[in-house]
Write a protein that binds this DNA or RNA. Structure first.
Lengths: 154, 154
DNA sequence: GGAGTGAGTTCGGGGTACGAACTGACGCCG
DNA sequence: CGGCGTCAGTTCGTACCCCGAACTCACTCC
C-alpha cells in the first residue's frame, strides 16, 4: 500500500478502509436494529461464518463495536455499538434514504422519528446562520487552513 | 442469490449493492471533487484500469453518472454526476465527517460551506416540528405501514 | 447419554481485483 | 511525414479474498 496521498476528502477514503467492504456496513446496520449475537447476525445476513467472525473482530479492534459478556460458562459475548459506532448512523441513514428515493424495488420499510416528539425526521445539511436545511447544490467546499483545530462535533 | 428477504432497512442493502464495493464511493467522491476524466480518476485513485472501466460503466448503467462527450474524433467522454449521483452527497458527507471526527490520522482537509452565506454547514437529523437538529440517540424507528406512499423528498 | 445450540476455526475451490502489457485513435513537434 | 506522448480502454495471468461445508468445543436440555 502506497503512502497516504495527502488529498482533501481523504477522510472518506480512510473511513471506507474501515467500513467500506462488502459486509461491514450491513453488520453495523444490523446491530443498530438490535441484533447482537453471532448467530442472529449470521442468520440475518446470510454471511459465511469465517467472514463474520473476521469482521466482528475487526470492528471490535477498531472501536466501532464492543463485546459484552452475556453469559459465563460457555463465555458468550454479544456485540454493541460504541459511541464511535453509533455515530455512523448519519451515514447509514443517508444510504437508506437514498435507496428509498432512487431504487424502485427498495420500498421504504422504516420511518425514523424524533424521539422527543414523534415527528418524522429529516436529514439534511443545516446552516446555523440561515437556520435552514438545504441540498447538495448549495454546498461549496474549501481546503481547511492547515493545522486549524477541528470544531467540537455535536 | 437468494430471493430478497423482506426486512426493514433493506434500502441500505440495496444501496450498498450499487455503491458498496471497494471503489465506487471513492469514484463518486472524486467526481464530486471535479475530476471527470478516466485518467484523472485513475491517477488520483491508483485504481487498476480494468476495474475503473468496469465501475464507470456500471455507474453509468445505474444512472449515477452520465457520460458527456467532450471531444470528437477520438470520441472522448467525461463523467458527470446525475441528480441521482448528486444526492449521494449526504452519505459522502456523513462518511467524511465520521472520519474527521474518529480517525486521528485523517485530518479534516476540507470544510463545507453553505453557498448562500458562506457559513460552515452542519449535518444532522432535523426535526421540522421542534426546529432543532439532534443526534443518533434521539432517533426512534418504526416499520412503515405497508403501501403508504413515500413523501416527496426535499 | 444423545441431541441441540452458540460461537467460532480449518479447509479447499472459485470468483474477483490486481498490475503489466497491448491496442488504437488521434495531436503535436521537429 | 515519422515518431512520441496521451487518453481510454481491453486482454491476460496471477494472487488473494470470499464462500460453503465440515469440524471443534463447551455447554444445556430432554
Amino acid at each position: 500500500m502506497a503512502a497516504a496521498r495527502d488529498e482533501p476528502f481523504d477522510s472518506i477514503a480512510k473511513t471506507l478502509e474501515l467500513v467500506g467492504d462488502r459486509w461491514t456496513m450491513l453488520i453495523v446496520r444490523d446491530v443498530f436494529r438490535g441484533l447482537r449475537r453471532f448467530e442472529e447476525l449470521r442468520g440475518d445476513l446470510g454471511i459465511a461464518r469465517p467472514v463474520l467472525s473476521d469482521r466482528l473482530g475487526k470492528l471490535v479492534d477498531r472501536g466501532i463495536l464492543a463485546k459484552a459478556r452475556y453469559q459465563e460458562h460457555p463465555p458468550r459475548y454479544e456485540y454493541r455499538l460504541t459511541e464511535m459506532g453509533l455515530e455512523l448512523s448519519p451515514a447509514l441513514v443517508a444510504l437508506m434514504r437514498w435507496g428509498d428515493r432512487w431504487l424502485a424495488d427498495a420500498a421504504p420499510g422504516v420511518v425514523l422519528y424524533h424521539r422527543a416528539c414523534g415527528t418524522e425526521l429529516e436529514q439534511g445539511f443545516w446552516c446555523p446562520k440561515c437556520a435552514t436545511t438545504f441540498g447538495p447544490r448549495a454546498i461549496k467546499s474549501r481546503a481547511r487552513p492547515n493545522g486549524q483545530p477541528r470544531r467540537a462535533a455535536r
